[in-house]
């Protein structure tokens, strides 16, 4: 899995790509988020538009990242989740707590609501 970081108005945008399932690198997404928290960056948007493979490893990485950010008064918003990922969110009811937006800009704007 690839992680590309950018920042806009104090909110970190992590653009994720590739397989969020098979390798240990998916778990490192949580480590990446924990490093951001250490830097005082607790508002994160994850752009999942280029994720090609999603399973329990990816799900676990998302959940761990979300709880770490929430524990530090931050938040995580998801942008551009693919149809498959949205299905997982729906069937697991994660959609009730983890918001998905159609675009990164919409996810960024949601922090100001």
């Amino acid at each position: 899995m690839r992680i590309k970081e950018s920042e806009k108005n104090g909110i970190v945008i992590l653009s994720l790509g590739g397989k969020m399932m098979l390798d240990a690198k998916s778990a490192s997404l949580h480590d990446y988020v924990k490093d951001l928290i250490k830097q005082g960056k607790t508002k994160v948007v994850m752009d999942m538009g280029k994720i090609t493979w999603f399973g329990s490893t990816g799900l676990g990485a998302l959940l761990a990242s979300y709880t770490s950010l929430k524990d530090n008064n931050g938040d995580l918003k998801i942008a551009r989740a693919t149809r498959k990922i949205r299905s997982v969110f729906m069937f697991t009811q994660i959609i009730k707590v983890l918001e998905n937006y159609d675009s990164v800009d919409e996810a960024l704007a949601a922090f100001n609501k």
């Binding site: 959940l63 709880t67 069937f91 697991t92 009730k96 707590v97």
Partner: peptide, 12 residues
């Protein structure tokens, strides 16, 4: 999968 068990209390 349960929001309460697996999400809010997620470990590893």
């Amino acid at each position: 999968f349960s929001i309460e068990q697996d999400f809010l209390q997620y470990k590893n």
